[in-house]
Lab assay of single mutants.
Amino acid sequence: GLPPGWRKIHDAAGTYYWHVPSGSTQWQRPTW
């Protein structure tokens, strides 16, 4: 699974990851 606080988001551009507490997003899968 993903580290705490991360969500996987799907949209028209593809899949990305959202860090809910900080509001940051990234294309790379977050690592622990």
Rank of each mutant, 00 (worst) to 15 (best):
G1H: 12
G1L: 13
G1Q: 12
G1D: 14
L2Y: 03
L2M: 05
L2K: 03
L2P: 05
P3G: 04
P3L: 04
P3F: 06
P3K: 01
P3I: 02
P3H: 01
P4Y: 06
P4M: 06
P4L: 06
P4W: 06
P4I: 05
P4F: 07
G5N: 05
G5F: 02
G5V: 01
G5Y: 03
G5K: 01
G5R: 00
G5S: 03
G5A: 01
G5P: 07
W6D: 03
W6A: 00
W6S: 00
R7S: 09
R7D: 07
R7N: 07
R7H: 12
R7K: 13
R7V: 15
K8H: 10
K8A: 14
K8F: 11
K8I: 15
I9F: 04
I9L: 08
I9V: 14
I9Y: 04
I9E: 05
H10L: 11
H10R: 11
H10D: 14
H10V: 15
H10G: 07
H10Y: 10
H10S: 14
D11S: 15
D11F: 07
D11G: 15
D11I: 11
D11R: 09
D11Y: 08
D11Q: 06
D11W: 07
D11N: 13
A12P: 12
A12K: 13
A12N: 11
A12M: 10
A13D: 11
A13I: 12
A13W: 14
A13V: 12
A13P: 02
A13K: 14
A13N: 14
G14P: 03
G14F: 08
G14A: 04
G14K: 06
G14E: 04
G14Y: 06
G14V: 07
T15N: 08
T15L: 08
T15R: 04
T15V: 13
T15G: 08
T15F: 09
T15E: 11
Y16P: 02
Y16A: 02
Y16S: 02
Y16Q: 04
Y16N: 02
Y16V: 07
Y16F: 08
Y17E: 00
Y17F: 07
Y17M: 01
Y17K: 04
Y17T: 00
W18I: 15
W18Y: 15
W18T: 09
W18N: 05
W18R: 08
W18M: 15
W18Q: 13
H19K: 05
H19N: 00
H19D: 02
H19V: 01
H19G: 00
V20K: 07
V20W: 12
V20I: 11
V20Q: 12
P21M: 06
P21V: 09
P21S: 07
P21I: 09
P21A: 10
P21H: 07
P21W: 07
S22P: 03
S22R: 02
S22F: 03
S22W: 02
G23A: 04
G23W: 02
G23Y: 04
G23F: 02
S24K: 15
S24W: 15
S24L: 15
S24I: 15
S24M: 15
S24V: 15
S24Q: 15
T25M: 14
T25N: 06
T25G: 09
T25W: 13
T25E: 06
T25Q: 09
T25H: 09
T25S: 09
Q26F: 04
Q26T: 10
Q26P: 01
Q26I: 07
Q26N: 06
W27G: 07
W27F: 12
W27A: 13
W27Q: 13
W27Y: 13
W27E: 11
W27T: 14
W27D: 09
W27L: 14
Q28A: 12
Q28D: 14
Q28I: 09
Q28H: 13
Q28K: 08
Q28T: 12
R29G: 03
R29T: 10
R29L: 11
R29I: 12
R29M: 12
R29H: 11
R29N: 08
R29P: 14
P30A: 00
P30W: 01
P30Y: 04
P30V: 00
T31G: 10
T31W: 07
T31L: 12
T31F: 08
T31P: 07
T31N: 10
T31R: 07
W32P: 08
W32K: 08
W32R: 07
W32D: 09
W32A: 09
